[in-house]
Design a protein around this nucleic acid. Structure first.
Lengths: 253, 253
DNA sequence: TCATCTTTTTCCGTATTATGGATATTATTC
DNA sequence: GAATAATATCCATAATACGGAAAAAGATGA
């Protein structure tokens, strides 16, 4: 095969390509389905998959299809904690500068999971358990994340998850959601205006170019988190999300 | 280098070895620290790490240390869902045969995370949110998992997490915990006897040989989940955990 | 039940990659 | 600023991973 520019170890890159294809297919796939998605020849795909099966990162099902294996779970959770650790100083700065609770969340299937939080010093404040999941369509971080995905993927995720309306202000239709996403894409930040919980407002922003979609948010009671607060929060969120983006790409490209 | 028995793709196996070493080191490590843990020469380690950095599965920090990267997060969560999907039919069988709520949880840092649940048909039943975390020392699945770890790792995890005592029956000291673990190792199953929540009892069992420590449990109110229930539950749990173990090793070895 | 088709798996000659010792570069420590 | 330690790069070559061809296994339909 033609030599390619000096770079990484080819087999390692190929192996991860296959893992991503399996993930994108929902976690389970046939050999020929993978072959349809990659230029690699079947024996090459097979050899790489057998290697991954041998070390526990892929499983072969009784129907001969291949699925992501259990050893990825712990790697994923350690990586989660690393990302949370990366975000903590930036969330602390957000709280120091804005006085309200700051959170980080990542896309997790058809929902978001909170990875890190620094609570506000106020007695009355937002508190979300780290590890807790939330809806994409009615949370600030969720809508921020949706705004960086293509419309087809947004539709699929939101239909899959459903659109419960926990408050009178919750978005309940795809049309309303897309209208809101258009605004978010234009303004560069999302608002949860008492959509997830009555009395709570939240401003959120996606981390640009993140390898796994993620967002930061700042939230508190509507009495404090008003338009004046937004004018101060948006630049701070941008600064923080850009810092994470920069940290994630250090020596990566 | 000497040829090794026909097996997997060497570079791929080595790359994952390095990822596991980084995970075991807490998620962040220096090149020379990795070199101390593996027979691989430095240039080889360096080349594999650079490959992983290039594709986002490892990050290099400003202090030149290496950390697990964000692209592992989604692979981990898809693998989580795959494992949950694997467990569901078995949990359903447990509920069908025993009538109480069945759960699956995995070790997650110094706690456990519930990955799957099938609730009991009873109106009064245990319900734990999938994704929710619980303590290792006072939950059935937690103690089942601890029982398959070596004492040093148990001590480290439990000291790190702390030993809150949510009920009067919660274990609060390492000595009491190790005494209980000795019994669990002898009997082959764990009991949460109103330790996590008053009025709730739970029997749990670890999945033998699982690449990431995991356990199944069956739980309900103490009025129903008594010694007679235990005598029926333990063989069913064993059957279910053995089935998962078998599914996880299919074509893996 | 068997033939046919599809998919997965194995074989193996060899082209190409990954290897690792030597060395260069960068960062840290004294 | 020198010494030391750690990371990063170079490059000749040994050994691996490659992929076309073929075999084996499973699915499908008559």
């Amino acid at each position: 095969m033609p030599a390619k520019p000096a770079g990484g170890v080819q087999s390692v890159e190929r192996a991860f390509d296959l893992l991503e294809l399996i993930a994108r297919a929902g976690g389970e796939v046939a050999l020929t389905e993978l072959a349809a998605e990659t230029p690699l020849p079947l024996p090459t795909i097979h050899r790489l998959l057998r290697t991954l099966v041998g070390i526990g990162y892929v499983r072969q099902l009784p129907n001969r299809r291949y699925a992501l294996g259990p050893r990825l779970i712990r790697l994923g959770e350690v990586a989660n904690r690393q990302l949370g650790a990366l975000a903590m100083p930036l969330l602390k700065d957000l709280v120091a500068n804005l006085g309200e609770t700051a959170n980080m969340a990542v896309l997790d299937g058809d929902m978001v999971t909170y990875l890190a939080q620094v609570p506000s010093p106020h007695a009355m404040r937002m508190f979300t358990e780290v590890g807790r999941q939330a809806n994409l369509h009615d949370s600030g971080v969720g809508k921020a994340i949706l705004s960086v995905l293509d419309d087809e993927r947004v539709t699929r995720l939101v239909k899959q998850a459903g659109m419960p309306t926990p408050t009178p202000k919750s978005i309940g239709t795809l049309d309303d959601l897309f209208a809101d996403l258009a605004r978010i894409r234009k303004d560069g930040y999302a608002i949860d205006d008492e959509e997830q919980e009555t009395g709570v407002r939240c401003f959120a922003m996606a981390v640009p170019g993140a390898p796994t979609p993620m967002a930061l948010s700042i939230s508190g009671p509507v009495s404090r988190v008003d338009e004046g607060f937004r004018d101060r929060a948006v630049p701070e969120l941008r600064k923080a999300t850009d810092a994470i983006a920069a940290a994630l790409t250090l020596a990566g490209d």
